[in-house]
Design a protein around this nucleic acid. Structure first.
Lengths: 349, 349
DNA sequence: CTGTTAGCGCGTTCAT
DNA sequence: ATGAACGCGCTAACAG
């Protein structure tokens, strides 16, 4: 066992093997491997020849032990929306890839019933740093981790966090303002909103953007704000409700595309035409937004870019560089498609 | 730097520190940490006390170096459909979690331009084993890896693979047969199919299931087979085509939900009512399938279970157990919703 | 039951 | 420009 057809051990060649083959010391091989300049070109070539021949790759554990780094970055993902995370993770993975680092997936699903917290374990040499998506940790917990010297970057903070904590997020406020202004410019004055959890930053920021746009257009704040939970069903439920009103809104801003889909569904059931009777704007621009009927007008979040930006920030932290900017807010943009149109009647204030 | 408020090094306590505090040898601490039975209960408690106090966690690199394992499993994900992978990954992550192992994400996107292949690098101590989703590696490459003694399990093989290679997949054939039988039992006789790449196992198996059902119902093999690519657009294109036919099909089986959405879109544009004029079945049961209008009849793939099953199989491999069953095919099931109905007219053969 | 010792594979001074 | 020697933190024999 553990032998191949030649009878040779299949256990990988070590740096020592390479050194012996090349007739040099392991220190020299190490230098070649780490691209040190102080190696004769001839020697370098000679060593590389055997490295290639053997398909030699340094043992990450040994390297990690010696230089106190793992080239591993943890990324915590609360299990919520597949596409949302996937895009962020894809962006991050790509960015890390260029540094030969890899992403260790840490689903935070079962964290409640663990003695040692995820961050505690992750901090202890498992990884060099972490990317925290929508972390459920409190401000204090995160500050503690930070004071422990463990580098991390938050992506899309769930709750308000200390200024010292690096955060990469999307422009929720201005995106929501854009979406609302779009509806206003079409002539809508009676606009509903289906939000996410009010305690979440993403949701409260979007709500603020919504209100700002209304205020700036001198439209009295609408009472039609429904608190959803970012799932299809809550959009559906809200729509069933406001579409049954004696004076239903002519437009609705769903705080994410999922809920917009729910609204679409309810409208269809109730014979409400979109965008004829009701204009609909979402948020996220998920893959199928453009494939819906009608294609969904929505606000695009640059998720992959967020993953990449967070990775870059983390690299700077890992390299020990001073990071002055701890907040990065990537812009969102409105994608106008077919789910919005001028109100059919009574468009006046 | 690297010091906290107390002026003490923030570098984590090592096993030696714990040993000194507890007044025992590091070997004893190691034994306690690894839950060895040969430790006095008193000693164990004493050690654990300091372990807890210090929040001590063993250095994974050191441990990995010493026992030649990393507790890391690689999972390769070709970037295709977010939801598809996410579900598999979620299932796998959950299963690994219980073994204190973690998933290292390896996007295979940029693999073409690397000197050393992903598998080569991954094999060399980076991880203990791997989960390969829809691998693009050839049968020979995978066999080589296997003979090298690197444990891995393929999830949903892209191409036919040697029997010796462990594979976890879904019942494509019987799922497709089920879907087709459903259409047949509704009375459809003129049925189209929009497939994926014919070279892919998932696609050719589904096609075989489709044909089997038709044959068993004594329906002449339909010429209406369109090769798609699993993306929305290809479903749309195919539908535009077959709906323009003088004698269009009364039902269509899309080999995944994405393409079904494209078909839905084309039908809507062309004033073709679903399911009135055209019955539609998809494959996958993505999240929004039930939120579409009409809700999509489709074949559910147990993606999370696949991730879990693959992990279990990998564990057996990692533990050096003999694995007799190298093929696991998880059953798919038909979810009947609103996109299928009896044909409106000319239902006779 | 516990301590001593010897590596695991690699990076890194310090000499040369 | 290169080599010898030590240590990173931990596990695993082997003694006792």
């Amino acid at each position: 066992m553990n032998r191949n057809g030649n009878g040779r051990q299949t256990s990988r060649a070590t740096i020592r093997d390479i050194a012996e083959m090349a007739g040099v010391s392991i220190a020299t091989v190490s230098r070649v491997l780490n691209r040190r300049p102080d190696v004769a070109e001839e020697t370098r070539e000679l060593v590389m020849q055997y490295v290639r021949e053997q398909g030699y790759v340094a043992n990450p554990s040994a390297r990690g032990l010696a230089q106190q780094r793992t080239n591993l970055v943890a990324i915590t993902v609360p299990v919520v929306q597949a596409e949302y995370f996937n895009n962020i993770v894809a962006g991050a993975a790509e960015a890390l890839y260029e540094r030969d680092a890899r992403l260790v997936l840490c689903p935070t699903l079962h964290e409640h019933d663990r003695e040692v917290s995820l961050l505690e374990r992750v901090m202890h040499g498992t990884t060099d740093g972490a990317l925290l998506i929508l972390p459920s940790e409190s401000n204090e917990e995160l500050l503690r981790v930070r004071e422990n010297g463990f580098p991390f970057v938050v992506i899309d903070n769930t709750y308000p966090l200390d200024d010292a904590i690096p955060i990469v997020g999307a422009a929720h406020w201005s995106g929501a303002r854009l979406a609302t202004q779009h509806l206003l410019s079409l002539g809508h004055r009676h606009i509903a909103a289906v939000t996410g959890h009010h305690t979440w930053v993403a949701s409260s920021d979007r709500l603020a953007g919504f209100h700002t746009a209304l205020m700036q257009a001198d439209v009295a704040a609408t009472p039609l704000v429904y608190e959803g939970d970012f799932l299809v069903e809550s959009g559906y439920a809200a729509a069933r409700e406001f579409l049954s009103l004696p004076d239903p809104p002519t437009a609705v801003f769903a705080f994410n595309d999922n809920m917009a889909i729910g609204i679409l569904q309810a409208a269809r059931e109730m014979g409400v035409d979109i965008p004829g009777d009701l204009s609909l704007v979402g948020f996220d621009d998920v893959d199928i937004a453009k494939a819906l009927t009608p294609a969904l007008t929505t606000v695009r979040q640059p998720l992959e870019e967020m993953g990449r930006a967070a990775s870059s920030l983390l690299f700077r932290l890992l390299d020990g560089q001073r990071v002055e900017v701890t907040r990065i807010e990537l812009s969102t943009r409105l994608i106008v498609r077919a789910s919005t149109a001028p109100p059919r009647k009574r468009s006046g204030a």
